[in-house]
Structure formats: structure tokens, C-alpha cells
Write a protein that binds this DNA or RNA. Structure first.
Lengths: 241, 241
DNA sequence: TTAATAGTGTCTATAAGACATTATATG
DNA sequence: CATATAATGTCTTATAGACACTATTAA
């Protein structure tokens, strides 16, 4: 009954994948990488979430591994990053029993310059709108992307998550816009502003956003990296599994 | 740059651990297993979360592995089970780079008969009250247990989770009691009943709980296995990381 | 001036919080 | 009857939803 731990004891493959979201052209996008067109690799030529094997020499822990993948593809070093979950089974990878640890990251689109991956893999932003998400992905990545979207949309209902899709300084209208883009429905303006301001999550900076209209107050996060939980969801959620 | 995948490529150890909660004597308890007093094993004699290596022959996937661990210790076959997360680093296991996939389970105390593990390991329920949790556990299990408690208490504020700590049939007072035990604070009765009944999560069975007082209506879940999300938390939560 | 977006105010609806009251069993 | 717990009712409070209205800039 006792599990052996000799070097020969078969261990599952261990990978880390990252679901990276940003807002581009008024739409939510996810970063995908095209797999090598190499018959030795599983799913050659297909699009997949950025990720790969845990490197037990390079990676101190799983989160460091996720940050490395993110940095390698986008150059971003301090994203909002949280764990989404892990998936492991005998069937999800043709090379054998494999488990992936999945993280999900939110980054502002602005400073990102996509880096071609190792062996010049193609890297691209794909829009995700409604249920209309890229459906054919390598491995079980389509299912994982769905789970990430569900988590994102759920959490956006009652937290300050979407600020991490914006640059450091933003107006309340910017922020409301991101909520609406992620949730794909309009949000009531005055309720939104009351919620954000009374939560004490932001502070005004002494600058205004100028334009061909009334200038808008710029704000920044009071506690960068933190999440604020609002006392209610925008619209009541109902039964789930 | 390309990661090798020859059999010799070093893979992290892969384990699954389960945080199993129940309510016993009006207090929340967690199941722990004493590690073997064998100098070959890490953390000999210490208490730990039940778990162990993924068996790539026995376990179809991670959840099946978690269910197997639960069944082996408690005999319970259909618990409430959800994934808590995964932790992997170079330091958490003296045997080398190791990643654990952690699940968390809620079971009613009633039908459980604890099974001594392989090699007659001791298995016991430990009370968890406030921050007063068993602190010295093997590996990083104390930290994992804290995370599980945090997730449980958080989720109890706005979901129907605690029903899974009760038998199939229960009264509203039973249910309120479990909420109070997990949250360690009293809940207002009429608000609680309105919330539960208007959520449509339970249905009355044609039986009453008799006692030396007014009989109480017995209820059961309408959709066993499902979770109901309430539109508000009981008490507004505030900032977190 | 107009167009455009920022920001505020008013009224209603919903569900929680506090707390009192009524209901129904046993002994 | 007393006691214990179940179940309901009333009034207040907090915040979202709908929608109207005012404010401030550039052109």
C-alpha cells in the first residue's frame, strides 16, 4: 500500500499554463500561442494557452513558473496573478498522465509587446466575446479557458478585479467601461460610482483627463495588488454547480 | 529552450491532499492522519492532511484520486468536493521538487467510521476553532489548512455550502446552527430563514422533527450536489489580498 | 452656441439587522 | 399550567436600479 518513491516510480508530467486576459479595442482578449509544427509534439500547429513544463532548476515554485511564462511572452513582470486550479488526468496529454497548474493573469494592454516564443512560435491576442470563444485549442485548453472566463465574470460582479486591466491611473468612466466590457452588459452609472467611491479602494490624483468635454478626475488604487470585495453583486446570481 | 520530455527529464513529485471538514460536538473539525514513524519518510510521526502520491495506474484524474483518499480514510463515497488549489515548490518536500493538488471536502459526521490507514496509521478528527488550529503539521499543510478554512468561511457567507455538513434531512434550525458553527458568530434567525426559503434551495418533506417542544419542519435539498449563491453576504466583507 | 462626457440627485425595490410576538409540541 | 423551541411579523438600514438633471470642457 505504501507508495514507492524510488526514482523509477512513474510521475505524472507537470506543466503550468497561464490564461492572460487584457482589454483591446473595447473587447476582452486572451493570449494564445501557436504550437510548433513538429510531428514529435502533441497538437502541432494548434493554438494553446501559453505554458509548458515546470523547470525544477529554474522555477522556485509554481507561481514563479507562471510569472516566467508570462514574462517570456509579454514582457510584463508584475501582473495581477491568481491560481485558477489544476487539471490532471491520464487522457489530456497524449504523452501520458499529465497535470497542469493553471494561473490567470490580468494585464493592461498598453505596454505589452508580444514576444515570439522559442523557435519563433506565433503569439497573438484573440477576442473572447460571449460564448464565442476560440473553440479548438490544444489539450483541454478550451475547457480551461471557459473556466477562466467563468471565474473572471463571476468575480467581476463583486470585486474590484477589473482595475488590473487598466493602467495605474484611470477615470471612473474608464473603470466602468472595463466592467461593462467584461460583463457584456451596461452598468448603471450612479450605482457604480457610489460603489467604487464608498469602498475607499481608489484615491484621486491631482490631475484631470482632458478632452473635448468636461475633464474627468483621475484616480489610482490605494492598495495596489489588493482586491476589494463589494457587499453585493450587481445582479443576483442564481444556482450553479 | 525547448523542454525535453525523455523519460529521464526530471519531473516534480505529484501528490493529492484532501482537507476534510465535518461538524462534531457543535464544532468544526478537520481530519488528520499521523505519518509513519519511519526515518525513511519525511516528517515521521507528525500529523498531516490525508493524501499521497497520484497513482497513474489507479487514478483516472485528480478528482478520482482525491475521492479515493477520502474513501480510504472515511468510507464516504459521495461528498461535497471542490478543488482548493495546488502548491508546488522546490522546498516543501525534502524529497525534492513536489506539487500537491489539494481538494476540500464537506461531509456529515454521522455515518463516518474512521479507517486506520495503511500500516495502521492513526486517523483522527481535530477541532478547528478561530485561529486556534493545529499549528504543527507536516509539509506546508498548516498553511494549506488555513487557506481551506479561509475559503470555507468566505464561501459560507454567500452560498449554501454548509448543507453538506448535514445529513440529507434537516431543519432550518439545524442549518442555521451549522452556519453559526462555521462562522463562529450568531446569525439573525428571521433573515436567515427568509434567505434560505426564498432561495428555493430546499423543499419540505412530509415529516417533522419531534421533541419536547414545537415540532420542526424537516427539509431536504432540491438539487443535491448544487450550490446556491445568495445575492448578498451576511456581513459586508472588506479589503483582502 | 452645441456636442460630448463627467458627475449628482431623487425615488423605488430588495434583502439584511434588530427585536418582538405568536405557535405548538412535551411533561 | 410552564418550558422550550419553531415560526412569523414589524420597523429600520444599506445599497442597487432606473432615470432625470446639472456641470464643464473644446470647438
Amino acid at each position: 500500500m505504501k507508495q514507492p518513491m524510488e526514482p523509477s516510480f512513474p510521475r505524472p508530467l507537470a506543466t503550468v499554463d497561464v490564461v492572460i486576459f487584457t482589454v483591446l479595442d473595447e473587447r476582452l482578449h486572451v493570449l494564445l500561442v501557436q504550437r510548433l509544427d513538429d510531428a514529435d509534439d502533441p497538437f502541432p500547429g494548434m493554438w494553446a494557452l501559453p505554458g509548458g513544463f515546470v523547470d525544477i532548476d529554474k522555477d522556485r515554485d509554481l507561481e514563479a513558473c507562471a510569472k516566467r511564462k508570462l514574462r517570456e511572452k509579454t514582457g510584463v513582470t508584475s501582473p495581477y496573478l491568481e491560481q485558477l486550479g489544476s487539471w490532471g488526468s491520464t487522457k489530456r496529454d497524449p504523452r501520458g498522465w499529465a497535470a497542469t497548474h493553471v494561473y490567470f493573469a490580468l494585464i493592461p494592454a498598453d505596454p505589452v509587446v508580444l514576444e515570439k516564443g522559442a523557435n519563433a512560435q506565433d503569439v497573438r491576442w484573440f477576442p473572447v466575446t460571449g460564448k464565442n470563444v476560440v473553440k479548438k485549442l490544444a489539450f483541454d485548453h478550451a475547457m480551461i479557458l471557459d473556466t477562466a472566463l467563468e471565474r473572471l465574470r463571476n468575480k467581476v460582479e463583486y470585486t474590484s478585479l477589473p482595475v488590473y486591466l487598466l493602467p495605474d491611473e484611470f477615470t471612473l468612466s474608464d473603470l466602468q467601461r472595463v466592467y461593462e466590457i467584461v460583463l457584456e452588459r451596461p452598468i448603471e452609472k450612479s450605482a457604480f460610482r457610489t460603489r467604487v467611491l464608498s469602498s475607499d479602494m481608489v484615491e484621486a490624483v491631482s490631475k484631470m483627463r482632458e478632452g473635448a468635454n468636461r475633464p474627468a478626475q483621475l484616480y489610482r488604487l490605494k492598495n495596489p495588488g489588493s482586491l476589494v470585495y463589494f457587499p453585493r453583486t450587481f445582479k443576483p446570481r442564481r444556482e450553479m454547480d
